[in-house]
């Protein structure tokens, strides 16, 4: 019987080390966000009125954030299409879709940043009470993850333009896509929980 080459063995492996590492990372991220959502539930259900009376005049920008949510969901679709295109060896299309995804992610961060500036101007700060604290910690933690995903994507875009990816080898795009889609899927949960609960 002919011995398998290293490539064939790697090809037959059901789950690469990189993908397993990303899955474990996402598991720990889920536990982190569970803890934060758990804290939010305590504050939310522990207060009869929400926002608390001290912040009754502050209204969160639901419509703008809804538009921002749409941008993030579209970015999830574009990165998924980028992965599909590299699997079909359409490198140029993959590069363009990755850039589009990064631009949408940056737009999300800029819009959210401008919202925060307005909210701080209205008096909602991290130190202004439990409402401000849980809002900035929960939404800010997600924003840091989006920023991390954008930086990761920028590295992947650089690698894509230097010709590192093909239909046979694209684990960098694949792991980045998994992480990006996780960050995108998490956002609507946080949006409805924090902005509408």
């Amino acid at each position: 019987m002919m011995a398998q080459t290293e490539f064939e063995m790697t090809d037959n492996r059901p789950l690469s080390n990189a993908k397993l590492a990303v899955l474990i990372l996402l598991g720990s991220e889920t536990m982190l966000f569970s803890g934060l959502i758990g804290a939010f539930l305590v504050f939310r259900m522990g207060n009869v009125t929400w926002p608390p009376l001290s912040h009754a005049d502050i209204e969160l920008p639901r419509i703008v954030t809804g538009f921002n949510t749409l941008l993030l969901i579209i970015s999830g679709y574009t990165i998924f299409r980028a992965l599909r295109s590299i699997q079909l060896d359409r490198v140029k299309l993959c590069q363009n879709l990755l850039i589009l995804t990064g631009t949408l992610g940056l737009a999300f961060l800029i819009i959210q940043g401008s919202e925060w500036v307005q909210l701080i101007g209205k008096g909602l700060t991290l130190q202004s009470g439990v409402y401000g604290a849980i809002f900035y910690v929960l939404i800010g933690c997600h924003a840091i993850h989006v920023l991390g995903a954008v930086i990761w994507l920028a590295i992947v875009i650089g690698m894509a333009f230097s010709g590192r990816f093909s239909s046979d080898s694209h684990i960098g795009v694949e792991t980045c896509t998994i992480y990006w889609i996780y960050v995108v899927a998490l956002w609507p949960i946080l949006y409805f929980l924090v902005y509408f609960a």
Binding site: G38, L41, V42, F43, G46, V48
Partner: peptide
């Protein structure tokens, strides 16, 4: 209300390890 908040929070967080390990293990 605070007791109900703690209750739901504990139930939610208790379910997460099973969900996480279930999804990763299932995958």
């Amino acid at each position: 209300p605070i007791a109900r908040g703690f209750n739901w929070s504990v139930l939610f967080m208790m379910s997460m390890p099973f969900t996480v390990f279930g999804i990763i293990g299932g995958s």
